[in-house]
Write a protein that binds this DNA or RNA. Structure first.
Lengths: 105, 105
DNA sequence: CAATCCGTAACCTTATGGGTTACGCTCGGC
DNA sequence: GCCGAGCGTAACCCATAAGGTTACGGATTG
């Protein structure tokens, strides 16, 4: 079974997008009744690494996205895109502080 | 007659996506006749930093994506997505080496 | 009480983005 | 032929961050 994760479009996004770890917890682990320890072992990473992601203290790395895609039969792309949206939103918060000249009109 | 069947999915892309730096060079700098030095100054980064990106030795960071969006009047998201696709393709190359157990069927 | 589960601190390694400085190469104009 | 502009990049520094191991304390449960 393939799980489809729906991501809001860039234009509709006005609020802080959730950290991907939140999605993993609520849409993957809890429905399956899998503990963090079990999931970490299945993913082949330490409990600390998974815990950091679940609690928003670490990002989804490209390799982790592939691991998630295997464990939960999803697409690695969807996980990485969620991380991208999350990172982008935070980067946009500092847009006005950047001193950048326009090169194209 | 020989029939070529093309199978391509998000999970296993056939072609190595170009590094975002290639896009910047060919679609942004060259058409505008802007030198690397000029572009670096406009973007507010060092020549070394931009050069590393243009030559595929560094990634597009979220902040850099916002800088590019200002300088070239594009969307930061598109730049970051290009980087994501690039990273993902390389991460997928090591998929079989990962020891991951399935948690969902 | 004992066993789990979990967050996380402490500590280490590796990787990477970004800055500065400096070197050598190439190329075009004078 | 000389000189400056442009460029790649090495060397070196700093900060951040992912990932690992070990260990601790708190919460929950049999």
């Amino acid at each position: 079974m393939r799980t489809t994760i729906r991501v809001e479009s860039a234009r509709m996004r006005m609020h802080n997008p959730p950290h991907p770890g939140t999605i993993i917890k609520t849409l993957c682990l809890e429905p399956l009744g899998v503990t963090v320890t079990q999931a970490a072992q299945a993913l082949g990473v330490s409990r600390k690494t998974l815990s950091a992601i679940l609690n928003g203290r670490a990002s989804i790395s490209p390799e982790m996205a592939v691991r998630l895609s295997i464990a939960f039969d999803t697409s690695a792309e969807s996980w990485l895109n969620q991380q991208t949206q999350y990172d982008l939103w935070h980067a946009e918060q500092g847009r006005k502080q950047l001193r950048v000249a326009k090169l194209a009109v």
